[in-house]
Design a binder for these strands. Structure first.
Lengths: 190, 190
DNA sequence: TCCAATAAACTAATTTAATTAGTATTATAA
DNA sequence: TTATAATACTAATTAAATTAGTTTATTGGA
């Protein structure tokens, strides 16, 4: 039988596609194997199992997001950079809802690789905040504020939990205004 | 064989306990049945299956949270009420991480019952905002801002995604300060 | 009180997914 | 060219969800 030419990268990419199309929770090794025209056990030559697959998908997402956010911060500074970076997070999370779902469970796989994938991202945000005349200590807290809002907002959008006809784009814009106005009250504090 | 005296309520409560103790994703009908000293098929006399169980757990959570938040809003007003209500959300979500996890997937079961469970909650928040001299339109957006932040923050706390030793309690406090300061810039607007 | 109907539990069987064991075949590199 | 390693396979196992069909307890009239 002809070799399928599988490798880890191919498998993760296909899983990412399936996650975005059908939903993260609906990925099974059977479905994945079918999409790749192999039998489920063949996948075990490249991944350790479904937990490993999910972990790889999580890492894949954070690495892609890091790339995208870093690009968004090029040639902008201050609050403009902050806004650009937030917006790129939102775009990635909503355009890749399946992968984003895998990323949410970040915690469960806590390890060096995961830390490495998010470390660059953190230092990017950190660099932006540090140009805003905000104390290091408040920086740490504000990063959590923004991260919470962004993950929460994207999650709710992806889950179509915002029921009424109010514009989601406008809500995002106003939310950023609120956060930024609030952040400004911390300039020079401490 | 003696009847176990099962009913839907008993099953949901036990599932809620298990979700908080072992994690929402780890609930199986086998585990649940064992905890209730029955065989898995017996559960089907009261619930339609595992999807139905998860949906019921989601509703159970939103009803409990509604109750708790309403209590938190008694005898306070304005931004104090807003803060009290946010804090009670946070407490519930972190003290009931398993149930909160079920609540997150709210969307997937969108129906009248789910809407009814969150409707009261929405109108509570709405009433609070409407005392703050904020336009109806901005109200709609700000509710999304707060909701996103609160769900995101609780999710991250529950998943132990805030790695560093910075105080989580302090981050929550500062986040609320940021949101409230930002919200104040919308007073009288529009 | 008795009995029919209903509800609640059961056992047994089915389906589907994840995983493991063991085998065969292809590619590669000495 | 041949040994080795990698890759895919089939077959079997385990575990969970679910369905079918049966039994037994409860309960509300006659």
């Amino acid at each position: 039988m002809a070799r399928a030419g599988l490798d880890k990268e191919t498998i993760i990419r296909k899983a990412a596609d399936l996650a975005n199309e059908a939903g993260f929770e609906r990925i099974t090794l059977k479905l994945l194997a079918d999409s790749l025209n192999v039998q489920p056990p063949s996948l075990y030559n490249h991944i350790k199992g479904i937990d490993d697959l999910q972990r790889e998908l999580m890492l894949y997402g954070w690495r892609q997001l890091d790339e995208k956010m870093t690009q968004a911060a090029v040639c902008v500074s201050g609050y403009d950079a902050l806004e650009a970076v937030c917006r790129s997070f939102y775009e990635y999370a909503t355009e890749n809802s399946g992968i984003f779902n895998a990323m949410l469970w970040y915690n469960k796989f806590q390890n060096d690789e995961a830390d490495k994938a998010t470390e660059k991202l953190f230092s990017l945000i950190y660099r932006i905040f540090s140009t805003l005349n905000i104390s290091k200590e408040n920086c740490d807290h504000l990063i959590r504020t923004y991260r919470s809002f962004l993950e929460g907002f994207a999650l709710l959008v992806n889950n179509r939990a915002f029921g009424n006809p109010v514009s989601i784009e406008e809500s995002f814009q106003i939310s950023l205004q609120v956060l930024i106005a609030g952040t400004k009250t911390f300039e020079g504090k401490d």
